[in-house]
Design a protein around this nucleic acid. Sequence first.
DNA 1: GATGAATGAGCCTTCATTCAT
DNA 2: CATGAATGAAGGCTCATTCAT
Lengths: 228, 228, 228, 228
Amino acid sequence: MLEKATTPGRERWREIVERAAAGYLDGGRDPKQDRSRRRQLDLLEAATRVFARDGIAKAKMADIAAEAGISVSSIYDYYPSKEDLAYEIPIRRLAQFYGEFLAQGEPLRTMRQRLRLFLEMATEYAARNPDWARLLYLEIWPSVLIEEARVRRAVDDFGRIVVALVRDGAERGEWSADINAYQTATILMGSITHMIITWLLYRRPEDLVAATQPMVDQLLRLVDAAGP
Amino acid sequence: MLEKATTPGRERWREIVERAAAGYLDGGRDPKQDRSRRRQLDLLEAATRVFARDGIAKAKMADIAAEAGISVSSIYDYYPSKEDLAYEIPIRRLAQFYGEFLAQGEPLRTMRQRLRLFLEMATEYAARNPDWARLLYLEIWPSVLIEEARVRRAVDDFGRIVVALVRDGAERGEWSADINAYQTATILMGSITHMIITWLLYRRPEDLVAATQPMVDQLLRLVDAAGP
Amino acid sequence: MLEKATTPGRERWREIVERAAAGYLDGGRDPKQDRSRRRQLDLLEAATRVFARDGIAKAKMADIAAEAGISVSSIYDYYPSKEDLAYEIPIRRLAQFYGEFLAQGEPLRTMRQRLRLFLEMATEYAARNPDWARLLYLEIWPSVLIEEARVRRAVDDFGRIVVALVRDGAERGEWSADINAYQTATILMGSITHMIITWLLYRRPEDLVAATQPMVDQLLRLVDAAGP
Amino acid sequence: MLEKATTPGRERWREIVERAAAGYLDGGRDPKQDRSRRRQLDLLEAATRVFARDGIAKAKMADIAAEAGISVSSIYDYYPSKEDLAYEIPIRRLAQFYGEFLAQGEPLRTMRQRLRLFLEMATEYAARNPDWARLLYLEIWPSVLIEEARVRRAVDDFGRIVVALVRDGAERGEWSADINAYQTATILMGSITHMIITWLLYRRPEDLVAATQPMVDQLLRLVDAAGP
DNA sequence: GATGAATGAGCCTTCATTCAT
DNA sequence: CATGAATGAAGGCTCATTCAT
């Protein structure tokens, strides 16, 4: 088992995260279009704010354009529809998030550390980007209606990564091999997610990041103690 | 301490649940209007289905009317607007849920049992009423836009009850008095909620209720082991 | 001329007024239906208030029913449509008004007196029944849309009577035979009507009836002085 | 006079008319938007026709759009609601009318002439713009419901101007200083208004403008002869 | 490349009217 | 008789999307 622990095949998490992080590398930049790039990013940020505030369904293209300081019809130069615009945001943001996790998680030694990192990064990212967090946790995540495959996959990767980390840790012997990875991942993700949502809705706890740490401690203890 | 265990002051949960369950006792029924009552219930169920399927924002009154087998304008005999119709559903359903929990939880001996009951009832109720669950967990819960106080309160009571149960258990000495009730409640609720949402979105795990039990076991072990 | 002054043929006004006043004698009362009669009158008064307040086009049957203390569908026992209800009011009221004028005007000696009576009665009636006056002067009179012949006729009789009085006075030698009856009637009616409308809209002058008298004096001087 | 006769203080009418005429000078035109201006004017004229025909309350936006040859939603590019559209018409038209009166009335020598001008202009304007006249005299003027301050003021200015002219004439010694300006104005306005309304409703007299002149003669004789 | 202008499709809501009881 | 209950028809308004300039 120990040998196996070093087998590349076992590093499920890396594989998943790498693919997830690659999601946004969909084209080189045309230097001529840098100004256009900038506009597009402004647009995405403006859209994030408006979607977060009004919800995707009720958000108006006119409001987004105003927020971005461009004309409504210009939006259609970048995205063919409101939906496409809305979906581009999680695709990019999540890919970026996964990329950051990859960079910071790679040097770490244990899965336990990576698990902690992942959970804490999630809250930190949310705390730093509350509009985006609202959009992700309150709009996109729960949306039954989103069928766009790339969005679905990007969101699902979140859970897959946690499951992979738990499994990888088990295989490496960091905790019981009998651990129910799926169930444990549900607890980890659900707890973090719930805390973030509560913060988004009620601003409680006041300091989201600070409150996360002890909870992660408690959650990791659960992992350590995990039986079947 | 043991005597205190029976002191009314300690039974926070009862107080909260009783008030929450009373939410729907807002009027006796006029026997003459039984037919009307029936229509109204049909309407609420039809609305639940449509809201669950399309989301509140995108749901059409015409679809609801068709689903209920009545005319659109008849809906307005019962509710003054789409919003009001949408809000009536969680208000009633949650009150009913709290009422059932009160009835089943009262005879129990320990808070631990009540905690388990509450969490398991949540998944059972969701499994039995998937449309309603979709509406609650995917639409109403995450909605930033709902400001109607009664809805807000009914939803918030969910968390309040879990916190109260944890606290009551601590005071009765069922677990460490140092337990961080709020954090623990976050974990409990988040885990259950996350599992339900995952089931609603992906039908995984296949048997929601069966999958819940071991997770609740694991969660309760967490409570038992809880330190500060 | 004097003989002619007493000739019945000359008394145009009487003929017109008598026919106009007869408008409401459209049926004897069935003693059994006295209660129903009462209800109907209540309804008409309630409708007058609501029509005066909201305008005929915007008035709602529901409001009228509420104001009358009956059910909406009961209204349809009396009148087949909102329009019919609205039109019944001026038909009755005007006939009643013409009847009163006939009674009070008959004993008078001169057309000048009758003219004065008619103009003053118009303001008095308006002052005493402001709701009805609003309905007549602000809704029915200016309405292009009313095509119901009986209403049209009842309203038109108002002008016809004034013209007839002017003509009769001329024939009786009370003023110049060269008087332009139509033009003079326009001035008389327009002035009175305008004063009433101003009062209805702005409550100015405060005392409508008191303000009318000097104006009628001035108007009659005009008649006296009338040339072609 | 003699100079004093020209003293600003006395020229009440000028002050009122100038302010009233200024109502529509609410912005220079952006030359780039000339096409848009044109559309807007077309729209206003189409709306005038439809409002005149069906009444404001019963007029349909769809009909107005069809009449103007544009789409319904385009109307909302110009005016936020049917009411706003309806109110813009009298505001503009009346300001324009007051402006024309100012231009033509200024060079005149006597208030008597101005009074005649004003009354005759009113009928001429109505005869030339029967749709607008219908809207003003049959819909807006009598409407109890219009509370928009600018409309109210524009309409009220009509009466205020007549009163001012009568007063100014009295002060200049053109007629008795004891004249009851308010009552006289009521007669003048009421007569003209009544004649116009009669013409609008029944097309009688056939030639409105021609019929007006002798009536104004008669009315001015009344002013000349006015006592208290 | 950017946008002002225009629109069609659609949806919520209102309300006069009907009818079974 | 009286009415509660139900509805069809209609209309104001919104808004994502298109397109000529």
